[in-house]
């Protein structure tokens, strides 16, 4: 019985948001978000700081409840903490008293038989490249390794939707690129639906099948979907892929970072 549960949980799930609003006191953060996410895709949610990206993610995970509107995962509403989701936060949030293996084991779906659970933990530690560090404590490993353990903890849950809240933002630049490639590999292998919140346009362009830009309304009525863009190239992508350049420039311009070349030209004219 748990085995069949596991298998159903492992299938990538479709997500839909309908008129999602979230108001904190006098401040409207989300002003009615509508979004359909196909199963098995990576969706990047990008937007300026404080625009409500993380709020969307918390509503998806059931960590927060919408003021109005609904979140559906495979057609069933999210009501409280949802076992079909697994979250990775910006911080690894590992339990410092547990080894990496025991931390990953925390993500196992409830009712997993012991032996199967141990095998799964080892398999995921291997997949994220931490097989040799299973017995290390979180304080003994680097930030990147800790975040890989956090990723393994989420994936061992075999979630229908993997929710990533700026998961690589606190890592150094090179580690971040390696983590992006790792996530790309793992997602293509497992087919998990991924919602990736990021403020890193390069990261979104590199990883996402689709990029959704949240835009805060000028009148303070909360963020709405400002753009919904398909990423043209197939994954895995080369970081220097020229077909991605216009998309990157477009996104940056929408986020208030216009192309520099034009600015330089006007300066030269002066």
């Amino acid at each position: 019985m748990p085995a069949s549960l596991d298998r159903s949980a492992a299938a990538p799930a479709a997500v839909s948001l309908h008129g999602l609003r979230r108001v904190f006191g006098a401040r409207t953060v989300l002003g009615g978000i509508d979004l359909q996410i196909e199963a098995g895709q990576i969706i990047a949610l990008v937007g300026p700081s404080g625009c409500g990206k993380s709020t969307v993610l918390r509503l998806l995970a059931g960590l927060d409840r919408p003021t109005s509107g609904t979140v559906l995962i495979d057609g069933r509403p999210v009501d409280g903490i949802d076992p079909r989701c697994a979250v990775v936060f910006q911080e690894p949030r590992l339990m410092p008293w547990r080894t990496l293996a025991r931390n990953v084991a925390l993500g196992l779906p409830p009712g997993t038989p012991r032996a199967e659970g141990r095998a799964e933990v080892l398999r995921w530690l291997e997949l994220v490249g931490l097989a040799d560090f299973a017995d290390h404590r979180p304080r003994q490993v680097s930030g990147g390794m800790a975040q890989r353990a956090a990723l393994a903890r989420a994936l061992v849950r075999r979630p229908g939707v993997l929710l990533l809240d700026e998961p690589f933002a606190a890592l150094d630049a090179l580690t971040r690129l390696r983590m992006q490639d790792l996530l790309d590999d793992l997602q293509r292998r497992e087919g998990t639906t991924v919602v990736l919140v990021t403020h890193d346009v390069d990261e979104a362009v590199q990883l996402a099948d689709r990029i959704v830009l949240l835009r805060p309304a000028d009148d303070g009525s909360g963020a709405v979907v400002g753009a919904d863009l398909q990423v043209p190239a197939a994954r895995p992508r080369d970081r220097a892929d020229p077909s991605l350049v216009p998309l990157r420039a477009d996104l940056l311009a929408r986020l208030g970072v216009p192309r520099r070349a034009a600015a330089l030209d006007t300066e030269r004219v002066r």
Binding site: L63, A86, V87, F89, E91, R93, M95, L106, G107, P110
Partner: peptide
């Protein structure tokens, strides 16, 4: 943050307390 992590991974009540 650890408490929230525990909750996000389905821990409540006694489970959250002991783990």
């Amino acid at each position: 943050q650890l408490v929230e992590l525990g909750r996000a991974y389905g821990l409540r009540g006694v489970g959250l307390l002991t783990k």
